[in-house]
Simulated assay, not measured.
Amino acid sequence: MKKLLLRPAAKPLVFAASLLPFAWLFYAAASDQLGVNPAEALIRSLGDWTLRFLCIVLAVTPLRVLTATPSLARFRRMLGLFVFFYATLHLLSYAWFDMGLDWGDIARDIAKRPFILVGSTALLLLSLLAATSFNRAIRWLGAPRWRALHRLVYAVAGLAILHFFWMRAGKNDFSEVAVYGGVLALLLGWRVAHHWRQKRRAGRAAAGPAAGARQA
Rank of each mutant, 00 (worst) to 15 (best):
A73I: 09
A73N: 09
R74N: 06
R74K: 11
R74L: 00
F75Q: 04
F75A: 01
F75Y: 15
R76E: 10
R76P: 07
R76T: 02
R76M: 02
R77L: 04
M78W: 13
L79G: 09
L79W: 13
G80K: 08
G80Q: 11
G80E: 14
L81C: 06
F82R: 00
F82C: 01
F82W: 11
F82M: 02
V83L: 09
F84A: 09
F84V: 02
F84K: 01
F85I: 12
F85M: 08
F85K: 06
F85C: 08
F85G: 07
Y86W: 10
A87T: 14
T88C: 09
L89N: 08
L89M: 15
H90E: 07
H90Y: 12
L91E: 05
L92D: 12
L92W: 13
S93V: 03
S93R: 05
S93D: 14
Y94E: 08
A95G: 06
W96S: 11
W96P: 00
F97R: 12
D98F: 11
D98W: 08
D98K: 02
G100V: 13
G100R: 06
G100Q: 08
G100N: 04
G100K: 02
D102N: 15
W103K: 02
W103E: 01
W103C: 00
G104H: 10
D105G: 11
A107C: 03
A107K: 05
A107W: 15
R108C: 03
R108P: 01
D109Q: 10
I110Q: 03
I110H: 03
A111Q: 09
A111P: 00
K112V: 00
K112I: 00
P114L: 09
F115N: 06
I116D: 01
I116H: 01
L117N: 00
V118T: 14
V118Y: 13
T121D: 01
A122D: 06
A122V: 02
A122C: 00
L124C: 07
L125H: 03
L125T: 06
L125K: 00
S127N: 05
L128E: 03
L128P: 01
L129C: 02
L129K: 02
L129T: 07
T132Q: 06
S133G: 09
F134A: 09
F134P: 00
F134H: 15
F134T: 05
F134Q: 10
F134M: 04
N135A: 03
R136T: 13
R139Q: 14
R139V: 11
R139M: 11
W140S: 10
L141E: 08
L141G: 02
L141T: 03
G142S: 07
G142E: 14
G142M: 10
A143V: 12
P144F: 13
P144T: 06
P144A: 02
R145V: 06
R145Q: 12
R145F: 13
W146T: 03
W146P: 08
A148C: 03
A148P: 00
A148W: 14
H150P: 04
R151L: 15
R151I: 05
